[in-house]
Computed example of a mutant assay.
Amino acid sequence: MSVAESRRIVVFRHAKADWPQVPDHERPLAERGRKDAAEAGRRLTDTGISFDLALCSTAVRTRETWKLAVQEFPQRPKTVYEERIYEASPGELIAVLNETPDDLRDVLLIGHNPGAQGLTEVLAGSAEGDVRERMAGRGFPTAAFAVLSFDGPWKSLEPGAATLRDYWAPAD
Rank of each mutant, 00 (worst) to 15 (best):
R105K: 14
L148I: 06
L119K: 02
A69N: 14
R134V: 00
T120D: 02
D130N: 13
D102K: 02
E128G: 09
L119E: 04
A146W: 06
P101I: 01
L97K: 12
T65M: 14
E121P: 02
R61P: 11
Q75Y: 12
G118Y: 10
V131Q: 10
F145C: 05
L108W: 04
E128P: 02
R76Q: 15
P153H: 00
L104F: 07
R61L: 10
F140G: 00
G129C: 01
V147E: 13
D106I: 07
V80L: 15
I94F: 06
L148D: 12
D103E: 15
A143L: 08
N98T: 03
T65I: 08
A95H: 03
V80H: 15
F145L: 07
L148G: 08
G115F: 02
G125P: 09
T100Y: 01
E82C: 04
L97R: 07
S126G: 11
E64K: 07
L93N: 06
T65E: 08
L123I: 12
Q117K: 04
S89Q: 06
T120R: 04
R134F: 08
G118L: 07
E133S: 14
V147Q: 14
F73E: 08
E128T: 15
L123K: 09
S89N: 01
A69S: 13
L104K: 13
A146C: 05
F140A: 03
M135C: 02
Q71K: 14
R63E: 15
P74Y: 01
G115E: 03
T79N: 09
E92V: 00
R138H: 12
F73W: 06
D106T: 06
V131P: 13
A88G: 06
V122G: 01
E87R: 15
F150P: 03
G137T: 00
N98E: 08
A136L: 14
P114D: 05
R134I: 04
E72M: 15
D151R: 14
V70I: 15
A69D: 12
E92P: 02
L109F: 05
E82L: 00
S126P: 04
L93C: 04
F145A: 03
F145S: 07
D103C: 01
N98H: 11
P141L: 03
A136M: 10
Y81L: 13
G125K: 09
A95S: 12
K78G: 04
P77R: 03
V96R: 04
P153L: 01
P74L: 08
